[in-house]
């Protein structure tokens, strides 16, 4: 079945990324800034895809890593005047560290217990930040890093590229076999010698790293970090909705989901006010109950030719 070497999905995504690479030069800023947001959501979707998509561990509180990344950039730029690109790296590093620490404890919990423990951690994080005057407490941090569409764009573009490559590599390689085994039956996977705990922690760390990087870009583009906005569970829900709609665990699903969820909700701002999340919520219900494989999974099931091409 498997085509040797790199598949069509790989080249498709590569072509798309190359196209995105030159777009800012072809179009005015007003287009680039929409693409920045689209790439930001894409980055979040790939990030949660590592853990929830690949292993089935639903990380409802994933926003906590976004928040950590945002505060890393916000505080370092505000207090030490650190260059924002370094702030993004710092956000990624802290996202990784926190993900490993949190994952070490919470990944022992199965199914719904894991999901709930991530939610309470995200809520607790918000409540703790509110009482940290070093991070601006409830007043948050207001930044003035300027309007830097090119820097924003290529930073988030780079993050997405990394995520795509890693996702593809995992899904294609030996790691993917072990991970799929965890998803279908964790105990069976363990009994055939898959190092389940290490694999889960590795994926959770990756997802924390990229969510942290994405969060840092968020703080950078919105010129500030505010506790309620940054730790808003709506972010968790949006990224989750994106991979569910796009296709969990796949290499193509997250970007497809981000496009399908973000672009309409942006256009809706000017048309059908207040309906975005209602529609997204409804779509998630329908997809979870009737087509749990999402767009990519369904296309693969329906069409024999697409099965080999979409990953």
């Amino acid at each position: 079945m498997r085509i040797a070497g790199l598949g069509v999905t790989f080249f498709g995504l590569l072509a798309l990324m190359l196209l995105l690479l030159i777009l800012p030069f072809a179009f005015p800023f007003s287009t680039s800034v929409i693409l920045i947001n689209l790439l930001f959501y894409t980055a979040l979707a790939y990030s949660i895809n590592f853990i929830t998509g690949m292993t089935g561990y639903v990380s409802f509180g994933h926003v906590v890593f976004l928040g950590i990344g945002a505060y890393a950039l916000g505080a370092s730029a505000d207090v030490y005047g650190l260059d924002p690109v370094l702030g993004v790296l710092l956000g990624a590093a802290l996202g990784l560290v926190f993900a490993l620490a949190i994952g070490l404890v919470t990944l022992r919990f199965r199914g719904v217990y894991f999901a709930i423990s991530t939610v309470v951690i995200a809520l607790a994080a918000l409540n703790i930040v509110l009482e940290l005057p070093q991070l601006g407490g409830s007043q948050g941090i207001i930044l003035n890093l300027g309007f830097q569409p090119y820097s924003w764009y290529y930073t988030i573009w780079g993050i997405v590229l990394f995520e795509m490559l890693i996702t593809y590599y995992i899904n294609r390689g030996k790691l993917g076999l072990g991970i799929r085994a965890i998803k279908s039956d964790e105990d069976a996977a363990r009994s055939v010698g898959v190092n389940v705990s290490a694999l889960k922690l590795y994926l959770f760390g990756l997802s924390g790293l990229f969510a942290g990087a994405g969060g840092a870009v968020f703080a950078w583009t919105t010129s500030g970090v505010f506790p309620y906005e940054t730790f808003s569970l709506t972010f968790s829900l949006q990224m989750l909705a994106m991979i569910i709609i796009g296709g969990v665990g796949t290499s193509l699903g997250p970007i497809l989901g981000a496009v399908v969820v973000y672009l309409p909700s942006y256009y809706f701002l000017t048309v059908a006010i207040g309906t975005q999340l209602i529609i997204i919520g409804f779509a998630v219900v329908v997809i979870a109950l009737f087509i749990p494989e999402g767009i990519v999974g369904t296309l693969k099931r329906r069409s024999a030719s697409l099965r080999e091409l979409l990953e």
Binding site: P28, F29, S30, N37, P149, T222, F226, L269
Partner: peptide
Amino acid sequence: YTDDASQTSNIVPLYTKLVQQ
């Protein structure tokens, strides 16, 4: 004017559009 859904992430695209487009 347009709605911004009270979300900071919408502000940059909307204001860029207001000025440029």
